[in-house]
Design a protein around this nucleic acid. Structure first.
Lengths: 211, 211
DNA sequence: GGCGGATTTGACCGGACGATCAGGACCACG
DNA sequence: CGTGGTCCTGATCGTCCGGTCAAATCCGCC
């Protein structure tokens, strides 16, 4: 009965299958819009079988969310105080954009949750997330103080990185519709964001400019 | 029976009331998550009365969406070919941010719709929106060609403006949680975005730099 | 004040959905 | 080959929800 520690091989396989299907459906339809029947359909299992492995729809959703935040914050954690400031920031943008490209469903699941006011993540956001962001903002502020990055508000700087990278996952449909079928949004976003944050963050003195 | 052209005073009042309540509920819960009972509750009307003024839940939602796109695109339309390029772009950012501040529910309604793949707006996005964006991108490209704006991809530039401004409405909960209760996200966003786009867009040659 | 359409509502319908349960199939192990 | 636990499912329950309807109420107008 212990669902958090799969014991048998079948349990491990089916729980993974269910979580995968649930991610697919929840990210596309939102919590309320998703139904157990759809998830069961995608998973190739019967609805009662889903509820054999998870106690409720809510529980499946909760499991997805808790697994999510860590993955989502890893790139920020990797910001290295010992590194070269501009390079570190651009690498962070790069990693965040890679996440948006490789895990768009996770991004949309997260976006759905925040949009609804984060009823099931509030604690994590006000706790772990805020602490980590505050710490990294202090680091960034230090870099700016030392003249190694152009000055701006570190918190809003981080928001801007989140907004710009996640936009390509969350608003994928709009981006593709506007760009047309011939262009690859995620491929173009890399150089664009590199340029943007280079201009935003490069210290004032030197005369470098990326084309 | 003609609901699109309210004739009596009562019709006008109640339709407005319903649309206001529906905006409140749809933007907070998404289409599937919202119920007619909730909307009726907020509107202070009975559920059957809602359906006296609108033929279905779908119809209420559709009406909100069609009214939305125009408002949402007005700031972009106002981009003036005869104006000073950098000033025009910064004014556009400002207007878009004002929209996010004054109409966060509309922004979230829109975000919800796009997140789900825009099942009810696809046509408008691939039509009107794409055309307008393409036209304005040509204008911006011209400015860049003339050396009056720093070079970058105009489409992605517009995406970045959308992403950065709407982020403050759509992810409001997260932004506030991270900044803490003492700070005003929308007030700080103005100067921040002004700085960001100034650095991003200011032409290379001249020696002006905003503080 | 009373007539006719506009407005409002309580009661209800049918389908969808999350969840339960009893029982059957499967499988590891002796 | 039997036994006990794991795994799976058809049938079903109770609730919610969008939508309908007949009847009551309201309101402008003569």
């Amino acid at each position: 009965m212990n669902h958090s520690r799969p014991r048998t091989r079948i349990q491990a396989r089916n729980q993974d299958t269910i979580l995968g299907a649930a991610l697919e459906v929840f990210s596309a339809q939102g919590f309320r819009g998703a139904t157990l029947d759809q998830i069961a359909e995608v998973a190739g299992l019967s609805k009662p079988n889903l509820l054999y492995y998870f106690p409720s729809k809510e529980a499946i959703h909760a499991r997805l969310l808790t697994g999510l935040l860590d993955t989502w914050l890893d790139p920020l954690r990797a910001l290295d105080p010992a590194g070269e400031p501009l390079g570190e920031m651009l690498a962070y943008v790069r990693r965040k954009l890679d996440l948006a490209r490789d895990y768009p469903r996770e991004s949309r699941l997260f976006a759905n949750e925040i949009l609804q006011g984060a009823p099931r993540m509030r604690a994590a956001i006000e706790g772990d997330l805020k602490r980590l962001v505050d710490a990294k903002c202090a680091l960034i502020a230090g870099w700016m103080e030392a003249g190694r990055l152009a000055r701006s508000d570190p918190h809003h700087l981080i928001f801007s990185i989140w907004a710009l990278t996640q936009h390509y996952a969350d608003f994928d449909m709009q981006v593709r519709a506007v760009l047309g079928p011939a262009r690859d949004p995620l491929a173009e976003a890399g150089p664009f964001l590199d340029t943007l944050f280079r201009r935003m963050l490069a210290p004032q003195a030197p005369g470098r400019s990326g084309s």
